Computed example of a mutant assay.
Amino acid sequence: MGVLAVWGRVLSIQSHTVHGYVGNKSAVFPLQLLGFDVDPINSVQFSNHTGYKNGFKGDVLNGDQLKDLVKGLQANDLVKDYTHMLTGYIGSVSFLSQVLDVHRVVKEACPELAYFCDPVLGDKGKLYVPEELVDVYRERVIPVATVLTPNQFELELLSKVKVTDLTSAKHAFAALHARGVQTVILTSCELPPDAGGQGDSLLLLASVARGKGEAGPPRLFQAVQPKVEGHFTGTGDLIAALFLAWTVRTNGDMLAAIRKACTSMHCVVSRTKEAIDAGRNANREILLIESRKDIEEPDVDADIINVTTV
């Protein structure tokens, strides 16, 4: 048997649950399945995600502990080979500041490092984190991020642009590109049909700034995908990991990366919804293991996702 390719080495700083799939539990397995070596740092270790009706137990990593972990990596010369850094939910300004210090250290050792940031702030008009984190993301994170994966509410917060149609979405993207981020992927967007929405479908938009020496506006991509009704925890962590993997594996072909990532995502969520409706998934956890073939080999020929340039 031949040696399989390793596509990159990822430092993933996210939450961890003993049971279920959110944070690193939602991101590490898909990345490994798709050929990436992943070093996870668990920002929290909880028994289960915070949405359970009887609560949760566990511990939160503080900034000094994160610093010590990275010092251990440095002492053993283990920070020199990272190709990517991935971050998700961060609950305090102090910890986010320490994450930025980690990025600086790793970037110095790995100048080609790409930073994929899922700026988990809230959804549908409600913040999940202290309000002061918004400014830290806007002023300090966006300028060093390579790829940003906000939802519609987060895009509006970070860009200070209300997204009501495709034109305003472009303005929001432009505001973030102007601060330095190369690619912005609006992972979910609901617009009325007369403003570019797709009725019962879910809209994803991706904006990619031109490279050095390239003229013209950012490239804009649109994906229309069937909407699966329901609330699913861990999907944002999963889609960020899938975009990281497929952006690399398609050599930056955004049309192909979107189609593959969204096809896998739709299959995972659909399978999860079926199990919930059938009474086999009382805790509503996304079914990652059961969906491993859809993650490793998404059936793009099924034409579930319609991806176009805009």
Rank of each mutant, 00 (worst) to 15 (best):
A302L: 10
A256R: 08
R138D: 07
D253E: 07
A261Q: 05
Q14E: 08
T233S: 11
Y128N: 00
V147C: 10
H19R: 12
E190H: 06
L202D: 07
L255F: 01
H177C: 06
G55A: 05
Q182N: 07
V44Q: 01
A223K: 01
T50N: 04
D277N: 12
P193Y: 04
F221C: 04
R104L: 12
N283M: 12
Q225W: 01
V3Y: 01
A209C: 05
T250Q: 03
N76I: 01
V310F: 07
P192I: 05
V3Q: 11
Q32C: 11
R210V: 01
A275V: 02
V163A: 09
G58C: 06
A174C: 03
A282F: 05
A282V: 15
A209V: 09
S264M: 02
L166V: 04
I295F: 04
L220F: 15
P119K: 09
E229Y: 00
S43F: 00
T247V: 10
T87F: 02
D101N: 15
L287F: 03
G88C: 06
V93T: 13
A169C: 12
Y128K: 00
R179Y: 08
T183V: 11
A27P: 02
H49V: 04
A257W: 00
Q32Y: 01
D81L: 05
L255E: 14
Y115A: 13
D303S: 14
A75W: 13
H19I: 11
A241M: 09
N151W: 08
G196K: 02
T164P: 00
R249W: 11
C189P: 02
T183F: 00
S201F: 05
G55W: 13
A178M: 02
L4Y: 09
D301A: 15
D39N: 12
F173G: 05
R284T: 12
E297V: 10
V18M: 08
K260V: 06
K80R: 13
T50Q: 06
H103A: 15
V228T: 14
V44N: 00
L242C: 04
D39G: 00
L205W: 04
G2W: 01
I276S: 06
L61S: 06
A282G: 09
L31Q: 10
K107N: 14
